[in-house]
Design a protein around this nucleic acid. Structure first.
Length: 964
RNA sequence: GGGCGGUUAGCUCAGCGGUAGAGCACUACGUUGACAUCGUAGUGGCCACUGGUUCGAUCCCAGUACCGCCCA
């Protein structure tokens, strides 16, 4: 049988994947030969998702651990599944409906819309699953889970009980008082018209503007505004009838409830407690608000005075709550200025009474948006407000050349007289970068909004999650991420879990007409709590992360007491990216500990973020996204997997370019061809480990043992890159570069049979050890090279070790390799034609050297291109080569350039001498002898002796050269 | 502002107490029983800077500079 010249990944991968599937190779417990379990929960990708490079890394690492354990006989489960991704999925389906010009979701109603989403899921929801299969992910696909399975309206095939788990936990936490409903300021997405959690907000710096406005003091009052330096020296002083405010959001001025200054700020001390006027709105109803003190304002920022709009800013909200300032809502769910509620006149009246200290109660119907602004978009309202204030002359003015104005600022033109006059002043609108919150899904500016939402009181359940990591019940790797975890959990905020969406687990709470809440798993049970009352269910759904927070137990069948739950929980290792430590890992810790009282996983391994070659984050807008499927098409899944693995150094972000993948595709080709060579020489796999007599064969078996130990050690400690690079160096650098070359002459002699057996066995070991990282090509080679009782996916992972290392063989082969390298180097440097065969004269050799040479002469002859070694002396026209315990001379003909040889040897001597000198100095230092470990001293002495020996040989050769 | 990283060959990265490694790129040679998706031999590094600990520091500690990321 003859093999193709290279591995055809495209056709083989599909065939092999189908075979794994057909034989149920990935089923939970497949190939188990011991009791220990190994469980991995996949971080569920969004049902709308498609495979990106981050998934490729994440799932490759999981697959490596899973395949490794499965081959070692653990009872292994890799649990796959998907997340229902509330906003994302609703968005996809709504967009599709719009494209098809179908009625929108409000037209068709909630039930019909949810039905449509299910239909979409049935049709398109398994995209990423199929892509993961192409990567080679060995999940138990028969168990594929979904965070919405079993929800009302779920079609056939979706009848899992994840929904039961979610509802059960909600009811339980509600009854314990951990879940509550409340009016609070939340992040509101005006595009999707829903609350989102703070983690779903992306704060980005964007070019912005900061306006400076004057809030006139009530009744025309004035004060002396004084700025002083640290010593109290007056720098600036003027009479003012206003207080200056800086804001990036002028439209929210309409809802101001106060102006705040820092208690230590002397500039404004004279007017604290007075009222000032909001410089916008109908003149006949200008509102007055109090000037208060609070720790929040930063005296060094802007004017030091801050307007307080409690219903539209998180910081202001805090100030307002502390100081009893009313929270006036200005916008509707779409981010437009409100047009509901009371008239402006009535509203302004109520607000004025509140400013005067009167308790006005609930202000939710108070609408302080003037008539002409009602219904306008918030950004349009901003323009109008700015125009109005500027027209009224209440903007702070400045010179046109003021650098704070940014690029637009121009110095006065020469024709204007070179000097700005008072009437040339322009409004002070600072051009500056500001941090703005954007919805991570919608991309629109998030609006803080005062709404009724459901919250998890995370303070109440965070303790055990902190303890579990502190006492090591769950280990987080690399360690630095522990700090991130602690930092977040120690400062945890209530978690907003309600979403104003239709796709998701609807909140199991019903209200009667009086507003009493009834929480129960079903409507019937709620009704039983409220006999005779008419109940209405809360329309909101739960945050998707609330359900994915139950992933470990939910996928195993909880709340039922299933066999899987008992066997596979707590899970072994979670592999995930640092970007979801908060979203997911911390919440799973809290929820599992609260619900079932145990940690969800023993170890969390956090990998980096795959970046492009230059280290930049991949993003669509930058156009530097690398599609893993394209790489798989071009180079094969194994090459991609191997590349990602070799770059997965703990705590570092892999930087990936196609060049790297190409290099590892070449590695696939390399091992393919080494196998092809073995095949051509009748070296087949499938046999027992041979016990050969030849040094070469004994040596390579020892090297196999070393790499097996190193690979296990690396995987045990999650050093994936060490496992990959170690195997690469072994397979390419030891097996292909040396062992295969050594074997060539052996195939002609008395050791041919044992060499065939050894080579077959060595390659089997390579396939086995590489299989977790490169499953496809190894499975293919496994099938091609022997009669196998099982596929390699169920192959037995080896356990041999030190006992296979033959120290003598090791020493001899290292000596031979060194000699060959020295000869090759000398030849190349002296310009000997590569094809020329030289005589090899042994001028000196001790016993060990002679033994090594005698046993391996054919190898040296072949690889160094020499004739059989002969004893003799170095004559004219030879180059000298030194090896430990031996000296050689190679005649290269009459044309030898003595000068060149002298130069070569002198250079070599110089380098050796320099190295030796360093070691000698170290050994001569009495403190070294006193303090260094004995082994280190011994090692240093040996090294020095070897160098001195080399040096002596090189010098002897130089001397010889002179005398000739 | 708070926290966490990084700075090693031209490029991308390993190493992390005994004077440096890989892949890619580059130079020269080469179709020698599998592999040109290859082989052989080379070139290339004051391991950011300044102090300290140590017999010994790229590695540990402190500070400086620059570059990232996360959270306000």
């Amino acid at each position: 049988m003859s093999m193709d010249k290279s591995f055809d990944a495209a056709t083989a991968e599909a065939r092999i994947a189908a075979e794994w599937d057909r034989t149920d190779a990935f089923k939970a417990g497949a190939n188990a030969s011991r009791d220990e379990t190994f469980t991995v929960m996949i971080p569920p990708p969004n049902v709308t998702g498609s495979l990106h490079i981050g998934h490729a890394l994440n799932n490759t690492l999981q697959d490596i651990l899973v395949r490794w354990h499965r081959m070692r006989g653990f009872d292994t489960l890799w649990q796959p599944g998907q997340d229902h991704a509330g906003i994302a999925t609703q968005m996809v389906v709504e967009r599709q409906m719009a494209e098809r010009q179908e009625p929108n979701r409000r037209d068709i109603g909630r039930d019909a819309f949810v039905e449509k989403i299910w239909a979409w899921k049935q049709e398109s929801g398994d995209t990423i699953i199929n892509q993961l299969k192409r990567l080679g992910a060995s999940c138990d696909w028969s168990r594929n889970a979904f965070t919405m399975s079993g929800a009302p309206g779920a079609p056939a095939g979706e009848e899992g009980n994840f929904h039961d788990a979610v509802i059960r936990v909600f009811v339980d936490l509600y009854n314990k008082g951990i879940i509550y409903r409340g009016k609070r300021l939340v992040n509101w997405d005006p595009h999707f018209e829903t609350a989102i959690s703070d983690l779903e907000v992306e704060n980005r710096e964007t070019p912005g503007q900061m306006w400076h406005f004057k809030y006139p003091l009530a009744g025309g009052a004035t004060y002396t505004y004084t700025e002083t330096d640290e010593d109290g020296t007056v720098l600036f002083e003027e009479e003012r009838d206003y207080i200056a405010i800086a804001t990036t959001r002028p439209e929210t001025m309409l809802g101001d409830g106060a102006v705040a200054v820092h208690p230590s700020d002397k500039r404004y001390a004279p007017i604290v407690g007075q009222l000032c006027e909001i410089p916008v709105g109908p003149k006949e109803h200008r509102r007055l608000i109090p000037i208060i003190t609070d720790e929040y304002p930063d005296p060094d920022f802007g004017s030091g005075a801050v307007k307080i709009t409690g219903a539209h800013d998180f910081n202001d909200y805090g100030v307002a709550v502390r100081n009893g300032i009313p929270l006036y809502a200005l916008m509707d769910s779409k981010g437009a200025m409100r047009s509901d509620g009371q008239s402006y006149a009535d509203s302004a009246d109520i607000a004025s009474r509140a400013a005067g200290g009167e308790d006005v109660g609930d202000v939710s119907t108070v609408n302080l948006v003037p008539d002409e602004l009602r219904g306008l978009d918030r950004f349009e309202a901003r323009k109008r407000v700015v125009d109005q204030i500027t027209t009224d002359g209440l903007a702070v003015m400045t010179q046109p050349s003021d650098p704070r104005l940014g690029k637009a600022a121009r110095p006065p033109e020469p024709e204007d007289g070179g000097e700005a006059r008072m009437d040339d002043l322009v409004p002070l609108v600072e051009a500056k970068p500001i941090m703005q919150p954007f919805g991570d899904r919608s991309g629109v500016v998030i609006e803080p909004m005062l709404t009724d939402q459901w919250f998890v009181d995370t303070q109440k359940i965070v303790g055990p999650a902190l303890d579990a990591v502190r006492d090591g019940r769950t280990q987080i790797l690399p360690e630095q991420h522990k700090k991130v975890y602690f930092n977040w959990l120690e400062n945890i905020e209530p978690w907003t879990i309600s979403r104003q969406l239709w796709w998701g687990h609807q909140i199991p709470v019903w209200c009667d007409d009086d507003g009493n809440q009834y929480c129960a798993p079903t409507e019937a049970e709620a009704q039983a709590q409220a006999p005779g009352k008419t109940l209405t269910r809360d329309p909101d759904v739960l945050d998707t992360w609330f359900s994915s927070g139950l992933w470990p137990i939910g996928t195993l069948g909880w709340p039922e007491d299933t066999a899987e739950l008992r066997k596979y929980f707590p899970t072994s290792t979670l592999i995930t990216g640092f970007d979801i430590i908060f979203f997911w890992v911390a919440r799973m810790m809290m929820m599992q500990l609260e619900v079932v009282g145990d940690v969800p996983f023993r170890t969390v391994y956090v990998h980096g973020l795959v970046r492009d070659e230059k280290g930049a984050k991949m993003s669509k807008s930058k156009g530097n996204v690398i599609d893993p499927l394209t790489l798989i098409d071009e180079y094969g899944a194994d090459a991609l997997r191997f590349t990602l693995t070799s770059m997965a150094a703990m705590g570092r972000d892999p930087k990936l370019g196609p060049k790297h993948v190409e290099a590892n595709r070449n590695f696939v080709t390399k091992i393919w061809n080494a196998t092809r060579f073995a095949e051509m020489n009748g070296a087949r796999g499938g046999g027992a480990r041979p016990e050969p007599s030849h040094t070469v064969n004994r040596w390579i078996i020892g090297e196999v043992a070393r790499i097996r130990m190193a690979t296990d050690e690396a995987l045990d400690t999650y050093r994936f890159n060490d496992a990959a690079t170690g195997l690469y160096a072994f397979v390419w650098g030891k097996v292909c570069d040396w062992y295969v070359e050594f074997a060539k002459p052996l195939f002609d002699g008395e050791h041919a049979n044992e060499t065939r057996a050894t080579m077959g066995w060595v390659l089997d070991q390579c396939f086995t050890l590489l299989h977790p990282i490169m499953p496809f090509v190894t499975e293919e080679l496994w099938a091609l090279t022997g009669e196998r009782p099982k596929m390699l996916v169920h192959g037995d992972w080896p356990t041999y070790g030190e006992n296979l290392i033959d120290a003598d063989a090791d020493r001899q082969m290292n000596w031979v390799i060194g000699l060959i390298e020295s000869i090759r180097s000398a030849r190349a440097q002296m310009g000997v034609p590569a094809g020329a065969k030289l005589d090899l004269i042994v001028t000196e050799a001790d016993e060990a050297a002679r033994a090594a040479l005698t046993a391996n002469a054919p190898l040296v002859e072949r690889l160094a291109r020499t004739n059989t070694p002969q004893d003799g002396t170095a004559g004219r026209g030879t180059i000298a080569v030194a090896a430990p315990g031996a000296s050689f001379a190679l005649p290269i003909g009459d044309v030898i350039d003595a000068g060149a040889e002298t130069q070569r040897l002198t250079k070599s001597a110089g380098k050796t001498e320099k190295d030796a000198e360093g070691l000698r100095k170290r050994l001569a230092n009495p403190k070294f002898a006193e303090n260094a470990e004995p082994e280190v001293i011994e090692e240093t002495r040996d090294k020095l002796a070897a160098l001195d020996d080399d040096l002596a040989r090189i010098r002897a050769a130089l001397k010889q050269l002179e005398t000739l």
